Amino acid sequence: MARLRAHNGRILELRQHIRGVNLRQRLMYGFGAGVVLCVLGVAVPTALTWRRFDMAPINTVLVLLAVAFAVAFVASSWIETIRHPGPRPGTSGNRLTREELELDLEIAIESRLIDATPLDIPIRNRQFAFTESIPEELDQLRKESRHYRRRHNLFQLLIIIGSIANAGAQSFSDTTQPLKSIIIGLTMMVAICAGITGYYKFRERSFNLQQTADSIEEHANAFHLGLPPYDGTDSAANLALLTAKVETLRVEQSRREQQLDQPSETRDQAG
């Protein structure tokens, strides 16, 4: 049991490090996106109002913001690449990337499973261990759902902004050469974003993952509260039923992912 407690402590520590790395990477990407938006905020309005309106005051503010975001991006990139937390046990100062931390987490979980297998743990303890692993599954499913939902929202935002900017640029009859180039670029961006969202189906993937997480949570809550179909007095039978339900939901989720990966013609034939 002491080895299991040590594995649990190591797993919690690695998860905390991974959350910190994810937070720093989101900040880094946010600063980079701020630089891009400031540059676009200078280039596009200036081209649209060329020789019609003095954009110098606004552009000065946007340039200063772009410089601030660029400095923050460089600083966060340096922190992310040079000063990772979570040195490996038994080493001195070696820093880990997020991929290495996730690999160590998988190894720690596998090691905990290997050490727990030969133990003759009572059924109530096994039931508690299994139910404790369900929140981890829910967190992973919802994390992936949020990941795909953010991608879908990002590409949809680019499509909306690009379409509006393209329509505004085309409303000028006497378009100059820089403005024509911007129109072509906006049209290509909208087409590329639409193609990516249609091919990878981020919204459908996010919906399926969230639906699976909600279904697993519903069964887990019913199991904990003793609601049907887990209202029997036999705890072992309730645990077996919960395991079967969760595994069924996982298999259905995998099948839905495989269907999304297939071409539309193949899905139509299968349906």
Score class of each variant (00 low, 15 high):
M189I: 14
A129R: 13
I123K: 13
L227K: 11
G86Q: 04
S264F: 01
A222N: 07
L64Q: 10
E144W: 08
A33Y: 08
N22L: 13
Q25T: 06
I114D: 11
A108S: 10
K245D: 11
R255H: 02
P263C: 01
R126K: 09
D268L: 13
E106T: 14
A237S: 09
R267T: 01
L101W: 03
P178I: 12
T175L: 14
V61I: 13
A66Y: 06
I109D: 05
T248F: 10
N166L: 10
E257I: 13
D120N: 07
F69S: 05
P89E: 11
R124G: 03
I58H: 13
A270P: 05
S163R: 04
I183P: 02
S206C: 00
R256H: 09
E144T: 01
I11K: 08
L105G: 06
A108H: 09
E106F: 09
I159N: 06
R88M: 14
C38K: 00
N153E: 02
F130K: 00
V35W: 08
T266N: 06
V246H: 01
I160V: 12
A66N: 06
I121T: 07
R24S: 07
S76D: 04
L23Y: 14
L48H: 02
T212K: 00
F223T: 04
E252D: 07
I18M: 09
D174C: 06
T176W: 10
R256L: 08
V21S: 10
A72Y: 04
G185W: 15
Q127C: 11
T97V: 12
A270L: 13
L179Y: 11
P263E: 04
G195W: 12
H17W: 09
S264W: 10
L105E: 06
G232T: 15
G90R: 11
S235R: 13
I11R: 01
R255G: 04
T197K: 09
D139A: 14
F172E: 07
I192V: 02
L249F: 04
R51N: 14
Q258R: 15
H84Q: 12
N94Q: 15
E144C: 02
A108G: 11
Q210Y: 03
P87N: 11
P87R: 13
L249P: 00
